[in-house]
Design a protein around this nucleic acid. Structure first.
Length: 296
DNA sequence: GATTGGGGCCGTCATTGCGG
DNA sequence: CCGCAATGACGGCCCCAATC
């Protein structure tokens, strides 16, 4: 009975599996406080609803004003009248997005925390390349095709440094490993790692190179036209697999990065809330003293 | 110096939810 | 319904500190 808030719905974000349906619509925050310390009337208490990672999507960072009522046993019970239960259930069933969560957190408070942008600039950079690539492919007859960015500095900062198409017959590094005539699309990521996508022999001219907006920065996808033989089909599926793995690799990297930022953000938030809690306890103590002295 | 246990990072696979 | 991005889970690798 020291005025501390006993939040029974609190749960660690990582401990809740995303596949389990959440049944957290009846969130009751029981606030154990000394009844005599608070006048017998509805009290405005600042509480943060953060029962699971799912709810964090909507609730994290929001200091929500809630109604608190006494339950007859000296406990002050919060009643969630301001959130529709159905809507809440719907919200809770959604899978979390660290980006969304972080943006919620940073917009709700802590102006110092930078928002994660939606990679619009990266996409813009890629788009500018994709308009350039086809003309290179069509006008050059294999050999080595170097595509240099118009604005090298910008591209470097956006994660795409160079894109080089090399005829394996001339390629110094990959010639030994690839069948004669195989073409490799090489790209370099912002972190310096290099990735390759193979293009079967004789298909260089038949490819349209495009960079869909869904691809991560630095990825150029080649789409074959008119594949007929089983070998080509196999190569195509292998290539698709490579692309999928590559994209997933990048996605996993991004996801981990976001997750780390999210955890850091939460830790900061915990620190802030602990401070607030301390201050509130202190204030409560002072008010209590004041109230007692007045009655004497 | 060899071994071992923990922690971090990475790649891959499976799953889920969303948007077209 | 399908394709895709996001994410959890898992295993492998590497590094480091502690112990023998």
């Amino acid at each position: 009975m020291d005025g501390s808030i006993d939040d029974k719905s609190e749960d660690s974000p990582s401990s809740s599996g995303s596949s389990q349906p959440q049944n957290l619509s009846t969130v009751v925050h029981t606030i154990t406080a000394v009844p005599t310390a608070i006048p017998n009337q509805p009290v405005q208490v600042q509480s943060v609803i953060q029962p699971t990672q799912q709810s964090v999507i909507q609730a994290a960072g929001q200091i929500q004003t809630v109604q608190v009522e006494e339950d007859g046993e000296g406990h002050l019970v919060r009643t969630d009248t301001d959130i529709g239960i159905e809507k809440r259930r719907e919200i809770l069933s959604r899978r979390p997005s660290y980006r969304k969560i972080l943006n919620e957190l940073s917009s709700a408070e802590a102006p110092g925390i930078a928002k994660i942008e939606e990679d619009k600039e990266e996409e813009a950079a890629i788009t500018s390349i994709q308009t350039t690539i086809p003309s290179y492919v069509q006008t050059s007859a294999g050999q080595t095709i170097q595509i240099a960015a118009a604005n090298q500095n910008e591209l470097t900062t956006q994660g795409l440094q160079t894109i080089t198409m090399t005829n394996a017959g001339q390629g110094a590094v990959t010639a030994a490993a690839m069948p004669a005539g195989t073409t490799i699309v090489q790209y370099t990521q912002g972190d310096g790692s290099q990735q390759f996508v193979t293009v079967p022999a004789g298909e260089v001219q038949a490819y349209q190179i495009r960079a869909p907006s869904s691809l991560p920065a630095g990825v150029v996808m080649a789409t074959p036209t008119g594949i007929t033989s089983p070998q080509q089909l196999a190569e195509e599926s292998a290539r698709k697999r490579e692309l999928r793995l590559m994209k997933n690799r990048v996605a996993a990297r991004e996801c981990r990065k976001k997750k780390k930022e999210y955890v850091k953000c939460l830790e900061n938030r915990v620190a802030v809330l602990e401070q607030q809690n301390k201050a509130l306890i202190e204030e409560l103590k002072q008010l209590k003293d004041l109230y007692c002295h007045k009655n004497e």
